[in-house]
Amino acid sequence: MSDGKQFPGPKVGGDVLGLPSDVEQAYEEARSCAGVNAYTATEVMCRKILMHVAVDKGAESGKAFAFYLSYLSDKGYVTPPMRPWVDEIRKNGNVAVHEIPATDPKRALGTLIFTEQLLRMVYMMEHLAARYTS
């Protein structure tokens, strides 16, 4: 600690149960990036997580990014109420990748929150249902 600050910073966001290993690794990387104020990297990882989820849920790898978003929606992993905030993950990741200005920390933390919620809906609820229902 120096001047009351912890280095490296703590991971941002919460744990999500039931993630496959590659999705978990990508999510943990996004959390760690946010914890060290690497906000551009946070948003890039959140965008990449959308591809990981689609491939884990059966999409063919090696496709264009738009294919993965359509796949998640078409297969019901992204429901109509979720589309606006999943689209924010996409848009914010695109800005982080393709534009020069520094990434806004507040926006990046929002992107991480949206990503966490997507992972909870797609994986954690299924994991908990398997654990607690007959």
Rank of each mutant, 00 (worst) to 15 (best):
G18I: 06
R31T: 02
K11R: 15
F67M: 05
L19H: 09
H52K: 10
L69C: 08
A30C: 07
A54S: 11
A66F: 09
T42F: 09
A30F: 03
E24D: 13
C46R: 07
V12A: 14
P10V: 11
V16R: 04
T42S: 00
E24N: 14
Y39K: 12
A54H: 01
E29Q: 06
D22T: 05
I49Q: 07
V53G: 13
V53S: 05
A59V: 00
A59G: 01
R47K: 10
R31D: 07
E24H: 05
E28W: 06
K48A: 15
E24V: 08
R31A: 02
Y71T: 09
S70T: 14
Y68M: 01
Q25I: 14
T42D: 05
A59M: 11
V16A: 06
G9E: 03
G18N: 10
L19R: 14
G13P: 07
L19T: 14
F65T: 03
M51C: 02
G18F: 14
D56Q: 15
A41N: 14
T42H: 08
C33D: 12
G62C: 02
N37D: 13
C46L: 09
L17F: 08
D56S: 11
F65S: 00
K57C: 14
Q25R: 14
A26I: 00
L69I: 13
E28P: 00
C46K: 08
G14Y: 05
K48I: 04
K48P: 01
A54K: 09
A38D: 14
Q25G: 10
G9R: 11
E43H: 14
K11D: 11
G58P: 04
V53K: 13
V16Q: 03
G35S: 12
R47C: 04
G35R: 09
E24Y: 09
L69H: 09
S21R: 06
D15A: 15
Q25Y: 07
A30S: 10
Y39C: 12
V12F: 12
A30L: 05
L50E: 02
D15V: 15
A30W: 04
K48H: 10
A66I: 09
S61Y: 02
L19W: 00
A64V: 08
K57V: 02
K48C: 04
S32H: 12
G13E: 11
Y27T: 02
A59S: 09
K57N: 03
D15P: 01
A38N: 04
Y27K: 13
R31S: 06
T40C: 07
E29M: 02
